[in-house]
Design a protein around this nucleic acid. Structure first.
Length: 259
DNA sequence: ACAGCCTCCTGACGGC
DNA sequence: TGCCGTCAGGAGGCTG
């Protein structure tokens, strides 16, 4: 579930939870979540202080004076700051213990996602071939990107190597707003439709960040709320269709969204 | 270049 | 009550 807006909210949370505190120790409760050895991880971070965060798409980076970490939250990842007396959160896989006794937990029910020490943020982004951040992509860059490929719209939007940050729900919300069928091919889009993709994408991301939608509290008018069995189109009222597109469950209105 | 399928993982939920 | 199958989903890998 964590897509760009949720990760941006987590980035903020991380700063409030971790900045200005000295890392006393790192605890790993499930080695699967940590890429690399806990020993090396611990010695890298012990005594460090997180001072900076960055984000590209769904990836969060946290930097101490001398070390860099990347967090990917998969679909069920989250951060949770706890005091020493709190119970271990359910599904905690790793925690940073600070010298004030607090613990910042990385939770993950389904263990997709990971925490990893990296040499350098730019290199990581390069190796992953991540596209520009969906929140920062310019209209011109998007227009250029949309010029040519015969890919279907939804898989295009969700390809992190093209645009970083769009996941399943954002793609469905965006395509419904722009009245475009998820299987519409890129090369049939008009200029107006391309421009509306850019405009609506920005609106969705900014509103979602503002509303801190990581708890699923989307505005009631949003199409994303209809991504359930029996959901109805927020524009025409008919029952939404559900179909696998690019291997993902896709909800859309067969009447309003043009193929 | 693109499509389609598989794997990872675990809790929720429906059917019987 | 309990057992079983199915589903969700990001990303990477593999094949066609």
């Amino acid at each position: 579930m964590p897509e760009l807006p949720e990760v941006e909210v987590m980035r903020n949370y991380f700063e409030h939870a971790a900045f200005d505190k000295v890392v006393r120790r790192v605890h790993c409760y499930d080695p699967k979540i940590l890429k690399g050895e806990i020993r090396g991880f611990n010695s890298s971070l012990k005594g460090g202080v997180f001072q900076r965060t960055l984000r590209r798409g769904k990836y969060l980076f946290a930097l101490t004076q001398s070390r860099s970490l990347v967090f990917h939250f998969g679909m069920t990842g989250d951060l949770e700051l706890c005091s020493a007396s709190d119970d271990l959160p359910r599904f905690s896989r790793l925690s940073f213990e600070f010298n004030n006794g607090e613990f910042l937990h990385v939770t993950s029910l389904r263990k997709f996602g990971y925490v990893q020490e990296i040499d350098d943020v730019e290199t990581f982004i390069e190796v992953k071939k991540l596209g520009p951040d969906a929140l920062k992509i310019s209209l011109n860059d998007l227009l250029k990107m949309l010029d040519g490929p015969k890919t279907k719209l939804k898989p295009f939007l969700m390809d992190q190597k093209r645009i970083a940050g769009i996941g399943n729900w954002i793609a469905d919300e965006l395509l419904h707003r722009c009245m475009l069928h998820p299987e519409r091919t890129i090369n049939t889009l008009s200029d107006g439709q391309k421009k509306s993709l850019h405009k609506e994408l920005g609106k969705i991301l900014k509103a979602a960040i503002r509303r801190k939608t990581n708890k699923g509290n989307f505005p009631s008018k949003w199409f994303v709320n209809q991504r359930v069995a029996g959901g109805t189109c927020t524009r025409c009222g008919i029952e939404v269709d559900k179909k696998q597109v690019g291997g993902r469950s896709t909800y859309f209105c067969n009447e309003c969204q043009e193929t």
